[in-house]
Design a protein around this nucleic acid. Structure first.
Lengths: 218, 218
DNA sequence: ACTTGTGAACTGTTTCACAGCA
DNA sequence: TGCTGTGAAACAGTTCACAAGT
């Protein structure tokens, strides 16, 4: 079964991609798919697909390919999406409320139970099923509701403090959108997302592409 | 000067990180920083920092370190952040409007001129300086205003079509938040951001951490 | 005949360790 | 002496190519 050989971050990201593709394929009514087709849909190579999947088991049949439904199930389970993840969003600004309503989250079993914010003007507002509560209630709420995942969408200055409260409440993982590095103990999983980094990467690529087009050095 | 040796994506992402750290350091009034300090602040190694910077020039002084202001300037320029980037957001849903108002974007010179949406109920709404316009005006607006960057925050099904319109209008780069792969010609830079992938990566990490804690197979 | 699963080769990235310079 | 810049070594990730299974 699922061995714990270290799996690279890139492999995990591609698993998410495979899952999305498999769902589309299934919606089209296809029952079988080859690594070649899966690769084409995702803009990868077939060897990459086979290698990624082989970390977790032998899902294919030689000469035939992969069963779409079975592989979808398997990937879903590998990613831990075969369960409900109780989550909270901290920071009920534009980003926090957008994330709360992000349809793909609910679809994957991430259930956002509440938002938290310091601003009293926001308390009581609802986004979907979730209500905005005072930040002071974060820790007791998270503990009581056995929240597994905290999504941090606060200003940078508040991020570490919020993370500490989440950790104190026994959270298992944090998805941090605040543009600040936060420290967590080893038993807590952390993922940083920085939207500015993405845009800056794009700007770098554009500048580089311009230089290439004009005949830059090399 | 800036040679065009291929620089890895990870290096570019770290440059964004260095820039953020340098600004903090400058705000604290420090004038000089070593690769060691920079590494500590960013959770990296000093060799990594030096290697990254050495792709672009010799910014440091042996025995002394880097001048904070000069290095900040240099990194800013490498990333193409020493100019204004006219941008548009397509899709005026929660995510699109959150991105429009995202303070770090404006701070880096990304100027969002307008949003576009098919929904007539949204036309005329304003987010900051930007107004929501009909999607049908996207191409002419982008061409007329010489828009460089398009931020796509539409449903997956609309993403490629929107991208084509942006490309037709002479855009240079696309930041795609729609959970769909889009194709662009080689002269257009593309960056995909998929928020579900990030959460799924977190869920994978939590499941893996749990197995480790219970003594799963090595 | 077809397509997986996987060692081996290759390519890219990070870390090491030290020469060179202020 | 202190710290950068950088080849060389180590490590990680990807691609190749083919044996094995249906």
């Amino acid at each position: 079964m699922s061995s714990l050989r270290k799996v690279s971050d890139s492999t995990v990201r591609r698993l998410s991609l495979y899952l999305r593709i498999l769902r589309q394929i299934r919606a089209r009514g296809e029952t079988t798919i080859s690594s070649e087709q899966l690769a084409d849909e995702g803009g990868l190579t077939s060897a990459q697909v086979r290698k990624d999947l082989s970390f977790f088991g032998n899902f294919g049949v030689r000469g035939r390919g992969y069963d779409v439904v079975a592989l979808e199930q398997a990937v879903q389970s590998i990613l831990g999406l075969d369960r409900v993840w109780p989550a909270v969003v901290v920071g009920a600004g534009r980003l926090g409320s957008a994330l709360t309503a992000y349809p793909d989250f609910a679809r994957q079993g991430f259930r956002i139970l509440a938002l938290f914010d310091t601003d009293p003007a926001k308390h009581g507002r609802r986004f979907g099923d979730a209500e905005v509560l005072p930040l002071s209630e974060l820790e007791s709420f998270a503990r009581r509701e056995r929240v597994s995942i905290g999504i941090v969408a606060t200003p940078a200055a508040a991020a570490q403090d919020v993370a500490n409260q989440l950790i104190g409440a026994g959270i298992l993982g944090i998805l941090n959108f605040a543009p600040a590095r936060i420290e967590v103990p080893p038993h807590v999983s952390l993922r940083q997302v920085n939207l500015a980094v993405e845009l800056e990467g794009l700007s770098f690529a554009i500048v580089g592409a311009g230089q290439r087009a004009n005949g830059g050095t090399r």
